[in-house]
């Protein structure tokens, strides 16, 4: 079972919504694609894709989404920092996000936890939580922006991912860091974003050990990306040149999803 990071909608029944999204998506999306057929000629002029019938609308939109990945990678400035805020601006309580309820979230025993590192790295050792806690940590108070539109300001403390990548001898010319989580959630992060100074292996929220709701024992906090690109309960990282997809990315969310 995968996890949905951000489907808490005020006034909307969560369960119903997830059912809608999961069950009705292929059929309903197709119907909507077809109703939108009039625009396809115009869209194809922009992208150079050959649209012969409305059934390829889905493909066309996927192509545009890939094009948007490239545009966002171009816009992404590795030196532009996400705005930071005073502690007083922190949203309380900070929302819990998932498509399951809080008591269904992964419940990880810190003593047994191992963070696996694989792929294009020199040192493939698995890290215990104690070893990870020894790494130098920094704090950030930044805005978490959900793909749904809402946002919340939180305080995260942990090790800059770029320091860890250096430590394990990762090939930073590789294209992605691909993260896997305890419940099977996955997400690929492009290397320039992985190397961004604010991209963080997070161990604490609001100066306390990361609670279960926010991804104990480790979350990857990326203030330059939408919330669903901030995996929680992270158990492994693979440095790779292959695009391995992700839980939401495979369903159609834009893969880069940069802020």
């Amino acid at each position: 079972m995968g996890r949905i990071r951000s489907l808490l909608i005020p006034g909307v029944d969560k369960t119903l919504l997830v059912k809608d999204a999961a069950k009705l998506m292929p059929d309903l999306t197709r119907r909507r694609f077809i109703t939108g057929g009039a625009s396809l000629g115009a869209l194809s002029m922009l992208t150079g894709c050959d649209v012969v019938d409305s059934s390829s609308a889905e493909d066309l939109l996927k192509h545009v989404s890939k094009f948007n990945d490239a545009v966002q990678a171009l816009i992404f400035n590795p030196n532009t920092l996400a705005p930071t805020f005073a502690e007083s601006a922190i949203t309380k309580p900070f929302p819990f996000n998932a498509y399951y309820s809080e008591d269904e979230a992964p419940d990880i025993d810190g003593k047994d936890y191992r963070f696996e590192v694989s792929g294009l790295v020199e040192n493939k050792k698995a890290w215990t939580l104690d070893e990870l806690y020894q790494l130098p940590q920094v704090k950030q108070v930044t805005r978490h922006i959900c793909v749904e539109g809402w946002s919340a300001i939180g305080s995260w403390t942990g090790t800059p991912l770029r320091d860890f990548l250096k430590l394990v001898g990762a090939d930073t010319r590789a294209k992605y860091c691909w993260f896997r989580c305890a419940e099977g959630y996955t997400s690929p992060i492009d290397m320039p974003t992985a190397l961004h100074p604010q991209t963080q292996m997070t161990f604490k929220f609001a100066d306390e050990i990361l609670p279960r709701a926010y991804g104990y024992p480790m979350k990857i906090r990326i203030p330059t990306k939408l919330g669903f690109k901030n995996p929680k309960y992270v158990v492994s990282m693979e440095v790779t040149n292959d695009y391995k997809g992700g839980y939401w990315e495979d369903m159609g969310y834009n893969s880069f999803s940069g802020s």
Binding site: L24, R30, R32, T35, G36, L61, S65, G252
Partner: peptide, 14 residues
């Protein structure tokens, strides 16, 4: 338009 959030986003950003 789009059937769900993901579909709506694809349309919007196209």
């Amino acid at each position: 338009l789009g059937g769900w959030l993901g579909g709506g986003l694809l349309w919007h950003f196209a």
